[in-house]
């Protein structure tokens, strides 16, 4: 009797228990929360955005289906074209500088010196401070009247007239590029430093004995081994910079005369600022194919580098 009592539940599990043991059910149950979240916060807004861009909706006006008319309209919009060019220029130039400066900083920080940990922590500051706050500080520094930069240049005798940093279209672009580089370098430096630290110092020593000079050691040993990390960091940075909003919004608001608009700020200005919701949606969707292409190319490259 005692034996059957003990072995009973094991030999004959209840239907509910049996269902739990079926891995398909378990997998389904575990996937549901993620699927719901992704669906609710990514898939639904994306589809809604696509539908919106095919409509003529404005604030307060329920629109009708208009096909690709919105896209045709923005294609012929000179501000949109400037925004596209700006976005590529902004992303390209900042990425090059962030990579170069970040790598240089990472190499410096990878040496042994006193207070290394403290310096490494300080390097991260621009990255930690909320972008909006640090950008406001920069805006103040570039302010035509109160600019500390102008003041310094003036005191040092380099200039006799105020430079209108954010009022001149070219200078405004340069200014936001400087701020973006300032903000982005720590991420590059710390990530690349982490990458550098995975490279055994013995390899450098072996290369030194093999007769490689410092720059040859960098080019033949350090750089190829750092490349996978570099590619991932660049990928993240490009995606973020391409879709950047807050920096430009705070610094110039897209001005002067729409000269510094990026995809995101122009989409915001059209959609929310002007109330042309559908056209705004079309502008932000126009970013999608470019980003998609960049990501695909880089992911393919990363895979090639990693399987090499």
């Amino acid at each position: 009797m005692a034996v059957t009592a003990v072995s009973g539940p094991v030999a004959r599990p209840t239907p509910r228990l049996r269902r739990m043991e079926d891995e398909r059910w378990l997998a389904f149950a575990l996937l549901v929360p993620t699927a719901v979240l992704l669906g609710l916060f990514i898939a639904y807004p994306f589809i809604e955005g696509v539908l919106l861009s095919l409509n003529s909706t404005r604030v307060g006006v329920k629109g009708d289906f208009v096909g690709l008319k919105n896209f045709d309209k923005i294609w012929n919009d000179s501000i949109f074209r400037t925004s596209v060019w700006n976005t590529f220029w902004y992303t390209g130039v900042t990425t090059v500088f962030k990579l170069a400066l970040g790598l240089w900083l990472a190499m410096l920080l990878n040496r042994h010196f006193k207070g290394k940990a403290l310096v490494r922590a300080f390097i991260l500051l621009p990255f930690i401070i909320p972008t909006v706050l640090s950008t406001f500080a920069w805006k103040w520094m570039f302010d035509p009247t109160f600019s500390v930069i102008n003041w310094t240049l003036f005191q040092l005798g380099f200039i006799t007239q105020r430079i209108n940093w954010l009022g001149d279209p070219d200078l405004a672009m340069t200014s936001i590029i400087i701020v973006n580089v300032w903000r982005g370098v720590p991420f590059f430096a710390i990530s690349l430093l982490a990458g550098l630290q995975t490279i055994s110092p013995e390899l450098q020593e072996a290369a030194a004995i093999d007769g490689a000079r410092p720059w040859q050691r960098f080019w033949h040993v350090t750089w190829p081994l750092l490349l996978p990390v570099t590619m991932v960091v660049v990928l993240f940075s490009v995606i973020q910079t391409f879709a950047d909003f807050q920096l430009v919004y705070v610094m110039t608001g897209g001005g002067p005369a729409n000269a510094t608009h990026l995809f995101a700020t122009y989409a915001y200005q059209l959609g929310i600022g002007t109330g042309l919701l559908s056209e705004g949606a079309a502008v932000s969707l126009a970013m999608f194919p470019f980003l998609f292409l960049i990501v695909v190319v880089q992911l393919l490259y990363i895979r090639r580098v990693e399987t090499r």
Binding site: A206, G211, H220
Partner: peptide, 16 residues
Amino acid sequence: PMDRDIAMVFQNYALY
């Protein structure tokens, strides 16, 4: 090191 005409074998091989 490169001018000493020596070759070294490391503990962890240090292969590239």
